[in-house]
Design a protein around this nucleic acid. Structure first.
Lengths: 186, 186
DNA sequence: TTACTATATAGGCAAATGCATATATGCAAA
DNA sequence: TTTGCATATATGCATTTGCCTATATAGTAA
């Protein structure tokens, strides 16, 4: 799936691995997070498959960069994936909920502290997503060779981030309240 | 992480791999989904680590089963994990949002259909979570050797499932509306 | 009788993931 | 002068995952 994310961006314009990491950090963090080493690995693999080609570009103030360009084959791969409807939902992996599930015997105060830390983290992400205006997104899209129409879709995914973080914070608040309402064990 | 989920359940009582799959299907689906073969692999690995032991149990109406029991070492591992506070958030991987992000040129009607299919799926999960009463959960807990206190924590994670599905449906409705409000491309 | 379903365990294998590490350039700050 | 940071690419490696397949028992349905 990471490969399609990368092909999606390379479909707008040619980019280096480092570029891909940066653009994903600002525009897909709320639904697709990855790590630089995985991007480089996926680039190798995509090039081996013939979905992209690369060439080295010299820079005088910065290290050389290898710039990747999507091929017709890559474009076809991307289109196939986009055209295939999803018939299932992405399964969840939420470490915090897993811990909560088994935390009946944990110290209540420590648990609450842990949930408060999570609240801070989610609050921060919420503010990040809320702070991105459509104008910001259109500007980003412009830099990437994407259109204002693309920006509208990017904004829809941003909204999902906002709703998700608001929901998460609401759950944390509710849960902290429930924990406070219960006397500590023994 | 799957290993801790399994140790968590085995901490309540001895179980087979098949049992673990069944209990996880009804109680952790909204935050931890896994597949039978992964459970069996993790059991092998946990036994090799000394965290659990096993013995074969004969049944006359059903195939033999291998029942796993947590060891003191396993209990200590679990406790260590429970005691370590999470300092980050679980990164997201949401295939639908990734597709949406790159779907500006897709056929609007097809997109809406796709979102409606997702809506049905999420609606179904919401109803499942909403249908689980505290009494149901306490009963499940009882079968598993867990206490009513444990059931309260299980219920907190169930609530997260309800809020998540409600949020997801709200986002789908909002997005469908936005797509309907825009004329089809060309 | 045959096929299917539930119960039960497990191996194979490719791909993805996570995390650490190595290398190198050029700039700015301490 | 040295340290750190941003830029830039890449490898190694163990673990996890996803998914498919094989095997076996027993009961039920067609």
């Amino acid at each position: 799936m990471l490969k399609y994310a990368m092909l999606g961006f390379l479909n707008y314009r040619s980019l280096s691995g480092y570029d891909l990491k940066r653009i994903m950090d600002v525009s897909t963090t709320n639904f697709w997070v990855t790590d630089l080493s995985q991007i480089y690995k996926a680039l190798k693999s995509l090039e081996a498959d013939g979905a992209i080609t690369s060439s080295v570009e010299a820079q005088d103030d910065k290290p050389d960069r290898r710039v990747y360009t999507i091929t017709d084959e890559g474009r076809a791969d991307l289109q196939d994936w986009l055209d295939t409807p999803l018939t299932d939902v992405t399964p969840m992996k939420e470490a915090l909920l897993l811990k909560m599930f088994f935390s009946a015997n944990a110290d209540r105060q420590q648990l609450i502290t842990q949930l408060m830390i999570q609240r801070e983290l989610h609050k921060g992400m919420l503010q990040t997503y809320q702070g991105q205006t459509l104008t910001d997104i259109e500007q980003n899209a412009g830099f990437m060779g994407a259109t204002p129409e693309d920006a509208l879709f990017w904004d829809m995914t941003r909204r999902a981030g906002v709703l998700y973080e608001e929901m998460y914070i609401a759950w944390l608040d509710e849960t902290i309240k429930r924990l406070r309402g219960r006397k500590r064990k023994q």
